[in-house]
C-alpha cells in the first residue's frame, strides 16, 4: 500500500514537472485568458517536451535516473509555482444541481478506480510486449534500442518515452502512471472544453461519456498510448475553437503543436491530425491563408517529424512497416492475420451493420462490449440542437472518414480513441438536445443514460476489484502475475534458474517480466523457414544463450538444433483467458533450451556486419555509436523484399521504438510453428479481458 501511495505521489510530481516544463516552453505565448486551458496546454506541452528530451537523451545514450530525476524535480518545483499562480483565486463550482453532483462524483470514483488499476503490476499484453518492455530496455541500456523483433516498436513513441521517464523515476508501475496522467489530463480537457462551449451540464456529460465506462478505464490504466491521443486531440480541438473565437496565432500554433503531438504518438494520430486540420480548414475557410496554415503546420511538423525521420533513417520507410513495406513476407502475413482477426468483416454489409454490431455484438472489436453506448446513441442527436451547424457537420464528416479508415484497417475499438473527445462532446450535446424535446425525450434520455452509466460502473467495479489485493499488499506480485499474465510460470522459471548473464528468446509476447535481456522470437526476428546458417546468425546477433518456446513449435526446435542447443527443462504453463473472471486455458508446455557457450560471446554490434547483411550499411553506420543495433533481421527482410529500394531501405538498425499496438501475439505465433501452435496461440489471452489477441492493427 505504501508503494502505491508513493507511486501516486511521484505521479503528482511528474504532472508538476510537465507543468513546469510546459510553462517554460510556452512562456513566449500569451495566455488564452482561460486558466484551465492554460493549465492543460502547459501540462500537455510539458509532457511533449519531456518525451522529446527523452528521445534526444536516448539517442545519445544519456538515459540515466541521475540526469532525469534532478531535471524532473527542478521542473516540478517550477510547475508548483506556475500552478499556484494559475489557480490562484480559482473556486470549485458550488452550485451544481443534484444530477450534476452525481455525475461529478461518478467521475471522481472512476479516477479512483483508474488509480487502483494502474497501481497494480502491468498485465496487459501489448504493454508486456512493447509499451512497457521497450521503455524497460531503454532504461537498462541508458539509450534507445532498436527492437526489430516487434515491428510495433517503429510507431511513434512519445507516450512510451514518458513511460521510460517513469522507469527512470522508479519502475514499470511509475511508467504506467505517466499514461494515467495523460488520460486524466485528457478527461480534464474534454470537460473543460465542453464547459466553455456549452456549459456545465455538457461538461459533466461529456466527461461521463468519455471516461465513465469500463472500456475507458481499461485503456487508461493498461499502459496503452490511447490516453495520449485523447489528450492531444482534445487540446488540439480546444485550441482550434479558441482560434476560431479570437483569431489569435498562439491558439492556432498550440492547436498545431498538439495535432503534431498526436501524430507523434501513433500512426493513426497522424491521420486524426490531418482530418482535424481538414475539418478546421472547412469551418474556418474564410481565414484560411498561407500564413495561418503555416502557423498551424509548422509546430505540428516539428514535433511529429523526429519519429518519421528516425524510421526513414533506420529502415528507409518513414512509416515502417506500412505503405512502403519492410517486413519479410512471413511477418507481413502474420501481421495482416493479426489485424484481420478483429471485427466482423469489411464487406459493404458489414459496414452497414457496424452500428448495430457496436451496440449489440461488439466483443469482436477487442472488448468493444465494454465501451460506452452513449457515443453512438447520442452523438448523432447533436444535430437536433440549435448549435452552429457547420462545425458539427465538419466534425461528423472528419469522424466518419476516420471511422472508414479504421473499418478497413484493424477493427480494434480502442484505435478510435482520437475520436473520443469530439464525439463525447457531441454525445453530450445530443443528450441535452433530446432532454429538451418534450417529456418523453427527457424520460428516455434519463433512463438510457442512467442505465448505461450504472451498467458500466458495475462492470468497472468488478474489473477493478481484481487489482485490489495486490495493490493493498494482500497478494504478492508473483501470485498476481501468475494469475493475470499468460505463461508467467515459464517466465518465473527463467528468472529463478537462468544464470545472470543469460539472454533469452521467448516464443510468446509476454516478455516484460523476464529478468534477463529477452526478445520475442517472432517471424520479424527470424522466419520459421530460416535454415541453419541464418538461424545461427540470429543467435549470434542477439547473443542468445537460452530460448523458451512451446514444445509443439517444431520450426523453432529445429532452428535450435541447428545451433546445437540442448533442452534443459520443461515447464507447464497456462494462458490467462480472462483476468477479471480468473479464467485460464488448458495446461501447455514450454521447453527451455541452452545454446552452446561458444556461440554466445560475440558482441552484437552494428548490425550490418554482425548480421552479415553487408548491403545495408549506409545510414546506420553514421548513427551515434551507442545506439544498439539489433536490426538485422528486419533489415534482411527488407533487403530481400526490396527491390524497392533506396539504399537506405536496407538499413535498419537502431533502436527505437515505437509502435503501438498491434499485433503481437497472434502474429508471430501464427506463423511460427505448427498449426496446432498457431491455433492455440491465436487464442491466447493477453493479459486482459478475454481473448488474447494482442493488438495488431493500428494503422489505419
Amino acid at each position: 500500500l505504501l508503494d502505491s501511495a508513493a507511486h501516486v505521489a511521484l505521479a503528482a510530481l511528474t504532472a508538476l514537472s510537465w507543468l513546469g516544463a510546459g510553462s517554460l516552453v510556452l512562456a513566449p505565448l500569451r495566455s488564452s485568458g482561460d486558466r484551465i486551458l492554460d493549465l492543460l496546454n502547459r501540462i500537455g506541452a510539458g509532457a511533449l517536451a519531456f518525451a522529446l528530451l527523452t528521445f534526444a537523451a536516448g539517442w545519445v545514450g544519456l538515459l540515466y535516473a541521475e540526469a532525469y530525476v534532478p531535471l524532473a524535480a527542478l521542473a516540478a518545483s517550477s510547475g508548483l509555482v506556475a500552478g499556484a499562480r494559475l489557480l490562484r483565486g480559482a473556486r470549485l463550482p458550488v452550485d451544481l444541481s443534484r444530477w450534476q453532483l452525481v455525475l461529478a462524483a461518478l467521475l471522481g470514483l472512476y479516477v479512483v478506480l483508474a488509480v487502483v488499476a494502474t497501481a497494480a503490476p502491468i498485465s496487459s499484453a501489448d504493454a508486456l510486449l512493447y509499451h512497457a518492455a521497450g521503455p524497460e530496455l531503454y532504461e537498462q541500456r541508458h539509450r534507445l534500442v532498436e527492437t526489430p523483433w516487434v515491428w510495433h516498436s517503429y510507431q511513434p513513441y512519445t507516450v512510451e518515452l514518458l513511460v521510460t521517464d517513469g522507469f527512470l523515476l522508479w519502475d514499470s508501475v511509475q511508467g504506467a502512471f505517466a499514461v494515467l496522467l495523460l488520460g486524466l489530463a485528457g478527461l480534464a480537457a474534454v470537460v473543460g472544453a465542453a464547459g466553455r462551449l456549452a456549459g456545465r451540464a455538457a461538461a459533466l456529460l461529456a466527461g461521463a461519456v468519455l471516461a465513465a465506462a469500463p472500456f475507458a478505464l481499461w485503456t487508461t490504466s493498461s499502459t496503452f498510448v490511447e490516453p495520449g491521443l485523447v489528450l492531444t486531440m482534445a487540446l488540439a480541438g480546444w485550441n482550434l475553437v479558441e482560434f476560431a473565437r479570437r483569431g489569435d496565432a498562439a491558439s492556432l500554433a498550440l492547436a498545431g503543436l498538439f495535432a503534431g503531438a498526436a501524430a507523434g504518438i501513433k500512426y493513426q494520430g497522424a491521420l486524426a491530425a490531418v482530418l482535424l486540420a481538414a475539418a478546421a480548414a472547412v469551418v474556418l475557410r474564410r481565414r484560411l491563408e498561407p500564413r495561418t496554415a503555416l502557423v498551424f503546420a509548422a509546430p505540428a511538423v516539428v514535433v511529429a517529424l523526429p519519429w518519421y525521420v528516425k524510421n526513414a533513417v533506420l529502415t528507409g520507410n518513414p512509416v515502417y512497416p506500412f505503405v512502403f513495406g519492410g517486413l519479410n513476407p512471413e511477418a507481413e502475413r502474420a501481421a495482416a492475420e493479426s489485424y484481420e482477426s478483429y471485427g466482423q468483416g469489411e464487406s459493404p454489409l458489414d459496414l452497414l451493420l457496424l452500428p448495430v454490431r457496436l451496440l449489440a455484438d461488439a466483443d469482436e472489436f477487442d472488448r468493444g462490449e465494454f465501451a460506452s453506448p452513449l457515443y453512438l446513441l447520442f452523438a448523432p442527436l447533436a444535430l437536433l440542437g440549435a448549435w452552429p451547424r457547420r462545425p458539427l457537420v465538419a466534425t461528423w464528416a472528419a469522424g466518419l472518414v476516420y471511422l472508414l479508415a479504421w473499418f478497413f484497417g484493424s477493427q480494434q475499438l480502442r484505435f478510435l480513441a482520437p475520436l473520443g473527445p469530439a464525439f463525447a462532446f457531441l454525445a453530450a450535446l445530443g443528450i441535452l438536445a433530446l432532454t429538451a424535446q418534450r417529456r418523453v425525450g427527457r424520460a428516455v434520455t434519463v433512463a438510457v443514460v442512467t442505465g448505461a452509466l450504472a451498467t458500466g460502473l458495475a462492470v468497472s467495479l468488478i474489473y477493478t476489484a481484481q487489482f485490489v489485493p495486490v495493490v493493498t499488499g494482500r497478494e504478492s506480485e508473483r501470485e498476481f502475475l501468475t494469475e493475470k499474465t499468460s505463461y508467467y510460470e515459464g517466465i518465473d522459471w527463467l528468472n529463478r534458474n537462468l544464470p545472470p548473464g543469460a539472454r533469452v528468446a521467448i516464443g510468446h509476447v509476454f516478455i516484460l517480466y523476464v529478468d534477463r535481456p529477452a526478445l520475442w522470437w517472432s517471424s520479424d526476428a527470424l522466419t520459421t523457414t530460416a535454415g541453419p546458417s541464418e538461424s545461427r546468425r540470429f543467435f549470434r546477433r542477439y547473443r542468445i544463450t537460452h530460448a523458451q518456446i512451446f514444445d509443439r513449435d517444431v520450426a523453432r526446435i529445429r532452428q535450435l538444433e541447428y545451433a546445437g542447443a540442448r533442452r534443459i527443462a520443461r515447464v507447464t504453463v497456462h494462458a490467462v483467458t480472462s483476468r477479471t473472471l480468473a479464467e485460464i486455458g488448458p495446461p501447455e508446455t514450454v521447453v527451455v533450451y541452452a545454446l552452446p557457450r561458444a556461440r554466445r560471446a560475440r558482441p552484437a554490434t552494428p548490425s550490418a556486419q554482425a548480421s552479415g547483411v553487408s548491403s545495408a550499411a549506409s545510414s546506420r553506420e553514421r548513427r551515434p555509436a551507442d545506439v544498439l543495433n539489433a536490426g538485422s533481421s528486419a533489415r534482411l527482410c527488407r533487403a530481400a523484399a526490396s527491390a524497392r529500394a533506396s539504399p537506405t531501405g536496407t538499413t535498419k538498425p537502431f533502436t527505437p521504438s515505437s509502435t503501438s499496438s498491434r499485433a503481437a501475439p497472434t502474429a508471430s505465433v501464427a506463423t511460427s510453428a505448427s498449426p496446432a501452435a498457431a491455433a492455440s496461440l491465436s487464442t491466447m489471452p493477453q493479459g486482459s479481458e478475454r481473448d488474447g489477441r494482442t493488438n495488431t492493427s493500428a494503422c489505419a
Partner: peptide, 30 residues
Amino acid sequence: VRASTVAVVWVLVGAALYAIQILRRLAELA
C-alpha cells in the same frame, strides 16, 4: 415524422440492442 420522434426511437432501439449485449454477456457468465 418529427426529428425528435426519430431520435427517441433511435435511442430506444439502440438501448435495446445494448441491453441484449449486456444480457448475453451475463448469460455467458452464469
